[in-house]
Simulated assay, not measured.
Amino acid sequence: MNQAKAHPSLSNRVRAFSAVIAVVCLAAVGLQLAISLPAYFEKGRSLGGSLVEYFSYFTIQSNLLVALATGSVAVGGFSDRFFTRPKVLSAIVVYITIVCVVYNAVLRAIFHPVGWGRVADELLHVADPLLYIIFWLMVVPKNGIAYKSTLSWLLYPLVYIVYILIRGAFTARYPYFFLDTVKYGYPKVAVHIAILVVVFWMFCLLYAFIAQRISARKSA
C-alpha cells in the first residue's frame, strides 16, 4: 500500500494549517530578501552575486524547504511525491530545528536587527521553526521512521557544508562565522563541522525516537 492510499485525504483544517505555514515562510523569506538586497548593493555587489549570497544561508534554504513541503501537503496531501513523504518531512523538521537552536544559542547574542529586520529575523528563526515542529508532531504520519533512515537525512547538510567551503575558497565569504576558514583555518573549521554533524545526527535520532513513540501509542 502506498502513502497516497494510506492517507487518502486531509481535513480542510489540516490543509489550511499547512498552507498558512507555507505562506508565512515565503513571506519571511521575501521580507528578509527585500531588506538584504539594498545592503548587498551598498557593498557593491551585483544582483546575481547578492542573490547567490542570500540563498546560500542555511536558514533561507531550510525555510524554503518548509514552505515547499507544507505547500505540497496543502495541495496534494501525503503521497509518494518527494516533498510529501513522511521521511522527507521528518528530515526537514531536523533542518529547521537546527536553524532555531543554532541561531538562538549561538548567533542571537551577536546579531541585533531592528525594525522590519527584527520581524523577519524572528519569523525565520523562531516562528517558522515552531510552526513546522507543531505541524510535524500533530500532522505528519510517522510510520516507518527508523533510526537507520536518519543517516540519509545528513546528506543535505553535508552537501551544504561542502558547497559553502568551496564557495568560500573562491570568494572568502562565509554565511556563518564558524565555517570561516579565513578566520579560523581549516583544522578548526573541521572541528566545528564535526560538532555540527554530531548535533544534526542527535536531532535526527531524537525525532526518530519521537516518531516511534507516537506510532507505538497510536497502534496500541
Rank of each mutant, 00 (worst) to 15 (best):
I195T: 13
L123F: 12
Y184F: 15
H192L: 10
L107W: 04
K183D: 04
G117F: 07
Y132T: 06
I145M: 12
P187R: 12
I195W: 12
G117L: 09
C100Y: 06
L107H: 10
L179S: 09
S90Q: 04
V189H: 13
S149F: 06
V106W: 10
A190G: 15
L155N: 01
F135S: 05
L196G: 15
L124T: 01
S90R: 03
P187K: 14
T150P: 00
P175M: 09
G144C: 09
I98F: 06
F177K: 13
K188E: 14
S152Y: 09
K183E: 13
N104E: 12
T97G: 08
V162Y: 02
Y186W: 13
L155M: 12
R173C: 02
Y147S: 05
T171E: 06
S149C: 01
F111W: 15
A91E: 05
L124N: 06
I166Y: 10
V182Q: 15
A105S: 13
A127E: 00
A169R: 11
K188G: 06
V139S: 02
V99F: 02
R108H: 08
V102W: 03
V99G: 05
A169T: 04
V94T: 06
G168H: 05
P157N: 09
I133Y: 00
S149Y: 05
V182N: 15
I110A: 09
I193A: 11
Y147I: 04
L154K: 00
P187G: 14
Y156N: 11
V191E: 12
A105G: 10
W116H: 03
Y184D: 11
A146L: 03
Y156R: 10
A105W: 09
A194M: 15
V102C: 03
W136H: 12
L154P: 00
V182D: 15
L158P: 01
L137E: 10
K188D: 15
G144S: 11
L123H: 02
T171Q: 12
F170L: 10
N143P: 03
A91C: 01
A172P: 00
S149L: 10
L196Q: 14
F178D: 15
I92F: 00
L123D: 03
H125F: 03
F135E: 03
G185D: 12
V93D: 10
A91W: 11
L154Y: 00
P129H: 06
V182E: 15
S90I: 07
A172S: 10
V101R: 01
I98P: 01
I145L: 08
Y160F: 15
T97C: 02
A194T: 13
V101W: 02
C100W: 12
L154Q: 07
H125M: 03
L131K: 01
T97R: 02
C100P: 02
L158W: 08
I110Y: 09
Y95H: 14
L154G: 01
L123W: 08
H192K: 11
L165Y: 09
K183V: 13
R108C: 05
S152L: 13
L151H: 01
A194W: 12
F177Q: 08
L196I: 14
I166W: 04
S149P: 00
V139P: 06
V197W: 05
L137Q: 07
L131T: 01
I145D: 05
A120S: 10
V189D: 14
Y176A: 09
T97E: 07
I145P: 09
F111L: 10
D121F: 01
V93K: 03
L158G: 08
I166E: 07
I133F: 03
A120E: 03
L155E: 02
K142G: 13
I134Q: 00
H112R: 08
G168D: 09
